[in-house]
Computed example of a mutant assay.
Amino acid sequence: MTTSKTNYLSSDFYFAQDALTARENDNIHDLRAYLESEVAPIADDYWERAEFPHQVIKPLAELGAYGPIWEESRQFENTAKYRGWAALESGRVDGSVSTFIGVTSGLAMGSIGLAGSPEQRAEWLPKMATGEVIGAFGLTEPLSGSDAAGGLRTTATRHGDSWTLNGQKRWIGNATFADVVVIWARDTADGQVKGFLVTTDTPGFTATKIERKQSLRIVQNADITMTDVVVPEERRLQLANSFRDTAKVLLLTRADVAWQAIGNSIGAYESAVAYVTEREQFGKKLSSFQLVQDLLSRCLSNISASIALCMQTSDLLDQGRQTDAHASMAKSFATSKMRETVGWCREVMGGNGIVLDYGVARRFADAEAIYSFEGTREMNSLIVGRAITGTSAFVS
């Protein structure tokens, strides 16, 4: 069901947006309008300067961008398809702002929503939904990425009613300006991974911006060092008792990255279509050349197939039937097709495809990070392979 506000993207070739409710479509319309009017015009400049546009945080909160899944923070009842489409919309305009939303809403708020006590949910989720409190998610380490389940080196040692954390984290988005970081650390007593809400003003906690990035440059990724950081027991996520609980957060957000990848593909595709309909070579518009049309057709096919897969994946989440393998297949497929799509978009634009002014270069570069985080293609393929064969091929 749609409303008068519904405005289809040209890349929504099969009108998948029709699957959203009238209320969801209205909200998508408002989100799209804000992103196009306020974020799109500044994205290239902030990307080039590797700075974050803090002025977008509160308006996005007013649009319900943070925590739409949780009772304590959502503005209205919504579906996983809606939340995925919202990730597509933000990814279409800018991958970095989309990543900020994903870290805040999915990873940070998701950790609290899934593993926090009712008291922790009530304390943190409403403040994060309004943008009053900025969150981050600290799992990846300098020497631990894909092997986080067994290779986590950050430690947590209990002393009565408090814990002492020591270790390092790397690639932590939002961490340079976050108010609280969800830190995952290994309990020295039982060897299990547990989660902690660490406020960034805690003594012994430092976050240093990672410089010289060439992908998602607007995202303020940081190296975190914790030296004898003391966290009270009340700031330990009460329902996080092993890495299985960490994995639940990653499962919840993995499909959103697939949706974000579709958005990044669409942003590049729309820029390429606009370019070839204006650019002339050999006395004709580029859009009239067979090889150009072939590449654009391939791009749209990738986008359409990815939307269809992600719509079904989100529907399974609403039904309570989504598994690790469903989310992993969606993430692996959509990000692989994104990488292919942005490459073709750059190709049809020739040399101008590597210049920020033409809309593809930023998406082309950002695709590399989106392709890798929330599980590499290979790791997600092994999750699917385990579901197919019943045998794990992960190194133990």
Results as ranks from 00 to 15, higher is better:
82 Y>S: 00
90 S>V: 14
112 I>P: 04
90 S>L: 14
104 T>K: 12
96 S>N: 01
81 K>P: 00
93 V>G: 04
81 K>Y: 12
101 I>R: 12
114 L>G: 07
98 S>P: 06
86 A>W: 03
108 A>N: 13
90 S>D: 06
103 V>F: 14
96 S>T: 11
83 R>C: 08
92 R>T: 01
93 V>T: 12
113 G>Q: 07
86 A>G: 01
110 G>N: 04
92 R>K: 10
107 L>P: 02
111 S>P: 05
102 G>A: 14
100 F>W: 15
85 W>H: 00
96 S>F: 13
93 V>E: 03
101 I>K: 06
87 A>N: 11
96 S>H: 07
95 G>N: 10
111 S>M: 04
108 A>R: 11
81 K>W: 02
108 A>M: 10
81 K>C: 08
105 S>G: 00
88 L>T: 04
107 L>D: 12
86 A>C: 06
94 D>H: 08
88 L>D: 01
113 G>R: 05
98 S>C: 15
92 R>V: 03
104 T>R: 13
106 G>K: 04
114 L>T: 09
113 G>F: 05
94 D>A: 00
109 M>P: 03
82 Y>D: 03
92 R>I: 01
94 D>Q: 09
98 S>Y: 04
111 S>N: 01
88 L>I: 06
84 G>T: 01
105 S>M: 03
85 W>Y: 05
110 G>V: 00
110 G>L: 05
82 Y>F: 13
105 S>L: 01
113 G>M: 06
84 G>M: 10
113 G>S: 12
89 E>L: 08
108 A>W: 11
89 E>N: 00
86 A>T: 13
87 A>Q: 14
92 R>G: 05
95 G>I: 09
93 V>L: 11
87 A>L: 05
84 G>V: 05
92 R>Q: 13
111 S>G: 09
112 I>R: 00
87 A>Y: 07
86 A>R: 11
98 S>L: 02
91 G>F: 13
90 S>T: 15
92 R>M: 08
112 I>M: 05
105 S>R: 03
105 S>D: 02
104 T>C: 10
89 E>Y: 00
114 L>C: 04
108 A>E: 07
97 V>H: 08
93 V>Y: 01
87 A>E: 13
83 R>A: 13
111 S>Y: 03
94 D>W: 03
107 L>Q: 15
91 G>Y: 07
102 G>D: 14
94 D>T: 12
91 G>P: 09
103 V>T: 15
81 K>E: 10
108 A>K: 08
88 L>W: 10
91 G>A: 08
97 V>N: 06
101 I>T: 12
98 S>H: 11
96 S>E: 08
97 V>P: 07
106 G>T: 01
94 D>L: 10
108 A>Q: 09
95 G>F: 11
96 S>A: 15
105 S>W: 08
102 G>T: 05
106 G>C: 02
109 M>E: 03
110 G>R: 00
97 V>F: 02
110 G>F: 00
86 A>K: 06
93 V>P: 03
87 A>M: 15
110 G>I: 04
81 K>M: 10
92 R>A: 07
86 A>Q: 06
